[in-house]
Design a protein around this nucleic acid. Sequence first.
RNA 1: CGGAGCGUGGCGCAGUCCGGAUAGCGCACCUGAAUGGGGUUCAGGGGGUCGUGAGUUCAAAUCUCACCGCUCCGACCA
Length: 475
Amino acid sequence: MAKGVTKQSVDFAKWYTDVVLKAELADYGPVKGTMVIRPYGYALWENIRNIADEMFKKSGHVNAYFPMFIPESFLKKEAEHVKGFAPECAVVTHVGGKKLKEPLYIRPTSETIIWSMYKKWINSYRDLPILINQWVNIVRWEMRTRLFLRTTEFLWQEGHTAHATASEAEEEARKIIEIYRQLAENYMAMPVHVGGKTDAEKFAGAVRTYTIEAMMGDKKALQVGTSHYLGQNFARAFDVTFLNTENKIEYVYATSWGVSTRLVGAVIMTHGDDKGLILPPKIAPYQIVIIPIWKNDKEKSQVLEAIGKFRGELKSRNIRYLVDDNEQTSPGWKFNQWEVKGVPLRVEIGPRDLEKNQIVLVRRDIKGRKFVSLEKAAESIEKLLETIQNDLFKKALDFREKNTFSVENYDDLKKVIEDGGFVKAFWVGNGDMEAKIQQETKATIRCILFDQKDKGTCFYTKKPADKITIFAKSY
RNA sequence: CGGAGCGUGGCGCAGUCCGGAUAGCGCACCUGAAUGGGGUUCAGGGGGUCGUGAGUUCAAAUCUCACCGCUCCGACCA
């Protein structure tokens, strides 16, 4: 025990839990299903969050904060919504020992409380659009929980926008799913399928749900972000109307969208290997870890002096680094420790290197070491980090494509799902057929792909089809 | 909610079937020394209401009953 993590091939779920715990990303909280996000895990989340936050702001959104307590009556105003969320809500019934007249729901999502406020704020088309986002915790009392992937309480952002026209709201929902795609692919190095959800899989209360779906290391799908076009459903429920340019009263059009701490789980399961985590440089808390090696005080000061030579340059290039000069642990121990923690690049520097005026670079994602001169250290490191970022994406994309199969009939689909992987297939079936397939194979339609122009034959109904869907088992 | 398993120092476990003496091991922790380029070695040390409650017994971690909690596998979900 104590050393290493369970091999992926032995038990992927166990591997995942081992990695989260041993990399010190998170720990179990005292209340069932809750999670403590530890500093290293939180740093990773912060990096992802900050990137997303900047993207939202650049596209015209602003942050705000709404209360976590929602009156029961609010939740009940939108029929689909309450049906979808009420069963998994935590409810406050007592305050100060006294029973409340109206129970307070702890937000499972904030559409209702936000739209109750939008009613106050929106009168005219001149008040639109409202483009608000909030970073908050929410509570959903799920049956089965897994660290980062599905916890009772989790952190996320939820955007809630209000628009004067359906097309503008629709455009917003699509704009956001594109931002999510960029976040996943360009920063987390995680290739995603972008598309729409079927009615069965869409958000409770939405007209349409858009999604990004990624393939994890066990070939299962993970929904990593969703953006919903809500139409006028919530505006009707909360009676939010505005006067348009023609002086006519109209219901407001809405969107909502979110990504959560699940993203952290997605990174782990996209890139990790049997040694532990592998983090893409753009989101890694430490992009490099520098491990100095010495035997005596003389060597120590020489090594530290050498590090000092390129330290400043690392800083000026905005490279996040850590010098692990802990004298209590051996270099070998550090190597292993930082590999579990997924630091993309390790720098070793010891007496032997000083003689040659060099440093040793070891990539986390591939085998082998590289030697570069001390003078070129910072420059080489910066370049290598870029390479690692790109290689991780390529590797993940390659893995997904190798495990994605086109099928022309139902038997083929069953076989692919059985063996593990994504099915890419033409589809025009209805919800009942979808449910039947799910029951028989446990696979669901993860998404109906965007930007798809080919025509073919539905593998299930044999009817002409112009939509391609991804079927997979999912988390 | 259905199925399976587990509660013993901080963590992971053995001991439980077949009751008996001071409850044992690994990791972690503390002290000292040597080590230090792939999870270092040796010596010494601290720490446990055996999940909770009741019962059986001369005697319970061990047998009986009840309760509580957790993890994993299924239906729901970001």
